[in-house]
């Protein structure tokens, strides 16, 4: 218990530092946030056009697509804002930046994940929450599970990022490929569930469990299937555990390096 509290205090101090460092360039942060909102706004008319042509995609309607989109963008934003370091793990491995984290008496993953923030995350988070709020108001979805789904989706997304980023311990210069995987992970989560059938459905529930991030929450919002939600929570916890274990396995193969550099 004492160790958990100690880690929690360190985590809060780390988050404070990360935000202090990120908000040092307030102007840049606001501009990036505004641009990221604009980028995502462009996609909304596309959904309207798609669902005007085909109002029902295997049971999914416009409101479900908007809710899934809002959820996936908000989760992407949350992870970018608070745990951007996760996305950068392949680069941290290549540059030997885990060295200073490994000499601290705290979990390496905590420092590696929460030591940096991406300023577009703020815009993505705000946009996603606004879209979710719009769905709640316009289509009468319940507000209550929204924070829970945001946390659950972010854990799935963060675990997915961690899982694929960990490959960087074996594959050098992996950041570019990893970014492609993260992007596709998020893209899949924002697409209607009925397009995932057969093998794709299995993948969407296991290796790339995007269904746990957006499809299951929407099913709950519509049908209130508690059992499905229960299985999803179990799946999320298992996936998180698998990713963390995979990272610590990879850490054994960490080779450090002598690149001149500085943290921050």
């Amino acid at each position: 218990m004492a160790e958990v509290l100690s880690n929690l205090r360190f985590f809060l101090a780390l988050i404070r530092m990360t935000f202090k460092s990120a908000t040092g360039q307030r102007g840049a942060m606001l501009i990036r946030a505004i641009f990221s909102v604009t980028t995502h706004l462009i996609y909304i008319p596309i959904w309207f056009i798609v669902f005007t042509v085909a109002p029902d995609l295997g049971g999914w309607k416009l409101e479900h697509a908007l809710y899934a989109y809002g959820l996936s963008i908000a989760c992407w934003g949350l992870v970018s804002l608070f745990a951007f370091g996760l996305r950068m793990i392949p680069e941290q491995i290549d540059h030997g930046e885990l060295d200073s984290y490994l000499t601290l008496p705290k979990p390496v993953l905590l420092s590696a994940a929460f030591s940096s923030s991406k300023n577009t995350g703020l815009g993505e988070l705000l946009f996603g929450i606004c879209l979710l709020a719009f769905c709640c108001v316009r289509y009468d979805f319940s507000w209550v599970p929204m924070p829970f789904f945001l946390i659950m989706g972010s854990v799935v997304f963060a675990s997915g990022i961690l899982f694929f980023a960990t490959l960087g311990f074996w594959l050098k210069q992996f950041l570019g490929s990893a970014e492609e995987i993260y992007f596709n992970f998020n893209l899949m989560a924002s697409r209607p569930a009925p397009i995932f059938t057969g093998a794709l459905k299995v993948i969407a529930l296991t290796l790339v469990p995007v269904s746990l991030m957006s499809h299951v929450p929407i099913e709950f919002v519509v049908y209130h299937h508690w059992q499905t939600l229960g299985f999803a929570i179990l799946g999320v916890a298992s996936y998180a555990l698998l990713s963390v274990s995979f990272f610590y396995l990879g850490l054994r193969f960490y080779e450090s390096g002598n690149r001149f550099g500085i943290r921050g």
């Binding site: 101090a13 780390l14 530092m17 202090k20 460092s21 008496p105 001149f260 550099g261 500085i262 943290r263």
Partner: peptide, 23 residues
């Protein structure tokens, strides 16, 4: 060849963070 200090922040902020790391 490598720093544990945060590039954009004063060193005293890193010291404070480390104080939490070392309880």
């Amino acid at each position: 060849q490598r720093s544990q200090l945060w590039y954009h922040l004063p060193a005293q902020d890193t010291f404070e963070l480390l104080s939490y790391a070392y309880d």
